[in-house]
Write a protein that binds this DNA or RNA. Sequence first.
RNA 1: GGCCAAUUGGUCAAGCGGUCAAGACGACGCCCUCUCACGGCGUAAACCCGGGUUCGAUUCCCGGAUUGGUCACCA
Length: 482
Amino acid sequence: MKVRTRYAPSPTGRMHVGNLRTALYAYLIAKHEGGDFLLRIEDTDQERYVEGATEIIYRTLQETGLIHDEGPDKDGGCGPYVQSERQKSGIYLQYAKELIEKGEAYYCFCTPERLESLRREENGETIMSYDKHCLHLSKEEIEANLKAGIPYVIRQNNPTEGTTTFHDEIYGDITVDNSELDDMVLIKSDGYPTYNFANVVDDHLMGITHVVRGNEYLSSAPKYNRLYQAFGWEVPVYVHCPLITNEEHQKLSKRSGHSSYEDLIEQGFLTEAVVNYVALLGWSPEGNREIFSLEEMVKEFDYRRMSKSPAVFDMTKLKWMNGEYMKAMDPEKFYQMALPYIQAVIHKDLDLHKIAAMVKTRIEIFPDIAGHIDFFETLPEYDASMYCHKKMKSTEETSLQVLKDVLPILEEQEDYSNDGLYKRLMEYVNEKGYKTGFVMWPIRTAVSGKQMTPAGATEIMEVLGKEESLTRIRKGIEKLSK
RNA sequence: GGCCAAUUGGUCAAGCGGUCAAGACGACGCCCUCUCACGGCGUAAACCCGGGUUCGAUUCCCGGAUUGGUCACCA
């Protein structure tokens, strides 16, 4: 049978990295087997619906390369793929009624007030379990209530004795007492299905073979089994993904600042790196490789190698991985992407290609660029003590001497290419019997005003050009002469 | 609190009864070097705690501890 998985997000905002990973795994499981990956929009909660959120979903899937085979915009014969549209056709109510016929569900007319009285507080958490009050309503009472237009929901009728076991590919068999199974709402009083119900109905109708979802649904999974059984449907393969947490081992929240894909992109991360990194949180390939393109992941992915325990989202490692992608990137593409960050700092007419190349192996994320190249634009204020460097054996005195020696040489020098400058300066170095750094350190300091730079002295001068380089060196001499 | 799950270095993780317990990030050190980075080499750093089972447990079983998830007319 052809593998079919789906990603079924709610349009409530940006795509959380946990959701992104779930979507990724669903995609990989399907594609690894040559199956189909579908997109279904679960918008049954009109209150939480966020304008534009559906577009974010499309865009994110597009950018990350998780291309769906079927979805609202790609009819594969299982449509509609938006739950609110499916709802209009009345399918959920129809299936719920089928369950009522079978005695697996029942109408509930309980008021919010009565429900409220069922709540209790436990460790600051409000918890509630329904008492099957309306299960015992007579046929006549139900008819009367319905006729009177009293608002109702439809609840699942779960047994109170025995146990239910369901199987998860990652977590194995999980058995719970049926007494733990609450009579969850299937159809809300507004006529919309709940997530739990719509999910089961739609997954079945759309022929989903592997249900890939977050581990937070693990505890409600037994109820799903009961639903499938009640319908007499085949239970799909469940693949629950371990949680992704923040550094404090708490569920990633919007507050984390890096909880969504778009947050990360705004922070200067590359899509490929984010996808690659997130894939490795909760899954490990065979062997020691860590850098994978999406295509390579499709080939390698085996959900049996997923882990059960939650993983901390480690920004430090993501940054490292991003740096790896930066270094591996095509130079021209890197230049294009880095350009806005460079131009935010450099307004002079300098060779931006060269500057981009300098910075390529030195940054992890794009915003790092500014701190590396700001000195090209203007020479920062710096202290004369910066000329002292014990390893280069240079002091303020020796630096002054070197700069004075070198100034006329550089004034004469016509070829301001990196190679040309280096060659000429090395002549001076050799002539004097100095160490290279002894001469280069003061020059680089004068020309950049910084402790560290993304390039050597001569390379910087090449970009700065003769005039500016000389100005800065003279300024250095002046500073050291005081 | 009930239920469920998880538990290997700071983090991601390999391991699936016998290993000096992989690898990666990070940290630290060395080399390379016109600074910093890149690159190369290396060091430190872990099986939550008890009981079993077994000739032998990180690995299997049972308890405990800890952490997390869940207990909505949200998904």
